[in-house]
Design a protein around this nucleic acid. Structure first.
Length: 271
DNA sequence: CTATAGACCTGACGGC
DNA sequence: TGCCGTCAGGTCTATA
């Protein structure tokens, strides 16, 4: 499932294929993926525009278009953007963005959770969104300040995009393991030392995953169709019942806020 | 303001 | 073999 490292990889690998290309048309196989736009409005706005760049904010991809509009794409759980030529359309393709060199981008999404939105002029609009965890302004001090304001379980807080942008279920678990902190700890209960460890763990886990081109734990594929390899290094995420790589204790799985949360009960003690 | 529950979706999987 | 229930989780919306 695409989180920050996966979306970053998709952006990086899509970029050389689409920058400078003009969008000739868009085929919508599932109109429910459009947000705040009718299909007619969407088509008339997007067709003919040239793609000048792609950026990422949290888990959003933003395609910049040459008359100042932005195409925002969120892949949610099972979305993928695949570079296509004249091969048959992949299963579960919900939209096809046709480009002027007769290539295209397939928006494949088995569960239909993914969203597209065209924003006219100005900056792309997001909901409440916290700092980018890999930007220089995300300092240990900033994280400590944010944590102090929240008393919900740390796991729930890390998944809140208004707290930090881009972290999802897998990387929240990996970061908490790396920092040796239990996922149910109240966010405002961390010591200065623990908060510093968490800051370091978040950055290290995300950077490593980007270097490995993302984690293909379920339906994530890179634009060329290849999987990523970040999941090979996962130490707790989706490893329920398997031995902890540090102490051999079986990895536990508990639901927190409706999400499966994996951790080592010995390396991440409750108190 | 924070916190939480439900809705959106459908493939995969276990039990009978 | 097939049917059915349950689970997976990112984000938006509604409610306390």
């Amino acid at each position: 499932m695409p989180e920050l490292p996966e979306v970053e990889t998709i952006k990086n690998e899509l970029l050389p294929y689409v920058v400078g290309r003009r969008i000739s048309s868009v085929t919508l196989a599932w109109e429910g993926m459009l947000q705040k736009t009718t299909p007619a409005e969407f088509h008339s706005s997007i067709c003919g525009q040239r793609i000048t760049g792609i950026s990422r904010r949290g888990k959003y991809l933003i395609f910049s278009l040459d008359d100042g509009d932005s195409l925002m794409i969120h892949l949610r759980m099972t979305g993928a953007l695949l570079i296509g030529g004249d091969e048959p359309v992949p299963d579960y393709t919900r939209a096809i963005i046709h480009l002027d060199d007769s290539s295209c981008i397939f928006f494949r999404d088995p569960r239909k959770f993914g969203k597209m939105r065209l924003v006219k002029g100005g900056d792309a609009v997001f909901g409440r969104m916290g700092p980018e965890p890999l930007e220089p302004d995300f300092t240990p001090r900033v994280l400590a300040g944010l944590l102090a304001k929240r008393k919900a379980p740390l796991k729930a807080v890390l998944l809140d995009q208004g707290f930090i942008a881009g972290i999802g279920n897998m990387y929240a678990d990996e970061a908490l393991f790396s920092a040796r902190i239990h996922p149910l700890r109240g966010a405002n209960s961390l010591s200065r030392e623990e908060s510093r460890r968490l800051h370091r763990a978040i950055q290290q886990v995300l950077r490593t995953a980007i270097a490995n081109k993302g984690a293909s734990i379920r339906s994530y594929f890179r634009p060329g169709g290849e999987p990523g390899t970040a999941h090979v290094q996962f130490r707790v995420a989706h490893r329920g019942g398997k031995p902890c790589p540090v102490c051999d204790t079986p990895i536990q799985r508990i639901p927190i806020r409706g999400r499966g949360s994996y951790f080592c009960p010995k390396c991440q003690p409750e108190l």
